[in-house]
Design a protein around this nucleic acid. Structure first.
Lengths: 132, 132
DNA sequence: CGTCTTCCTTACGTTCGCGTCAACTTGTGC
DNA sequence: GCACAAGTTGACGCGAACGTAAGGAAGACG
């Protein structure tokens, strides 16, 4: 059961990133591809993690924040203290994301209002032009 | 009508940024405070722009993207072509933000599910411990 | 066997967003 | 008048997130 292993190039093509980026994420302990000799091989789990990494980046999270989130998505520690700790990290991140979600909603409303206004200005200008 | 002018220090205290940050934003043409002699003085408009800047940063936008957004929030050009151009920039950003909003919503749901799962694991562990 | 391609490591370079001095001007109180 | 606080302009520094070039290993192919 090879679990759909992919080479670094296949990963780059699939996710639109460079090899350098994948190696960099690995150096920061965000992904842990297998090694067949020297070569890296990425499985389903690595792809899932990379998806979350790129998503997190789009939200403006740092790689370190994302690393903590990933840690949360994978069981990790086996003792209660560890699990509670990562749970709290998850809750913190959730709080961040919910705040950001709410704020983004407002920003979208503001921007929409501005767009409507701009459209009105354009309508007025073209109307004036045609009535000239 | 002084329009509530504030010094750089008052701005820093109000927005929790450093003077360096405000001067840096100015160098990147994000804000344009008046000058009384050498000293900078910030009015209501500058504060509104700074609010949008800090908000944009929280969303992970670059200062350049934010600059374009700000350009959109202020009339700017007086000819039709200019206005249409900035309108399109605004629409692009709106699209970005709406995509991000939707994705963030999903991410929040995912994370919530993970948290519930982690809570269940903790409940099971403590129950086992107490039943020992 | 040599060559080609793909990957590897090492390491220095780059951009963004400021932090951190250093040295100078400018009101402000005493 | 003179110290002092607040502000100013360079200029260099720094961490994050990669880009990029140099040199080497390793399997595939004719």
């Amino acid at each position: 059961m090879q679990d759909e292993l992919m080479t670094i190039r296949e990963m780059c093509d699939a996710f639109d990133v460079t090899p350098r980026t994948l190696r960099f994420y690995e150096s920061r302990e965000l992904i842990f591809p297998e090694r067949r000799g020297q070569r890296r091989l990425y499985d389903r789990r690595d792809r899932a993690r990379l998806t979350l990494i790129l998503r997190g980046k789009r939200f403006g999270f740092s790689l370190e924040q994302i690393r903590q989130l990933l840690e949360f998505y994978e069981p990790g520690g086996d003792n209660l203290h560890q699990i509670v700790a990562t749970l709290n990290i998850g809750r913190d991140r959730l709080g961040d994301m919910e705040r950001q979600y709410a704020e983004l909603g407002e920003a979208i409303q503001d921007l929409k209002a501005q767009i409507v206004e701009a459209e009105a200005r354009i309508a007025a200008m073209t109307r004036d032009t045609h009535e000239d």
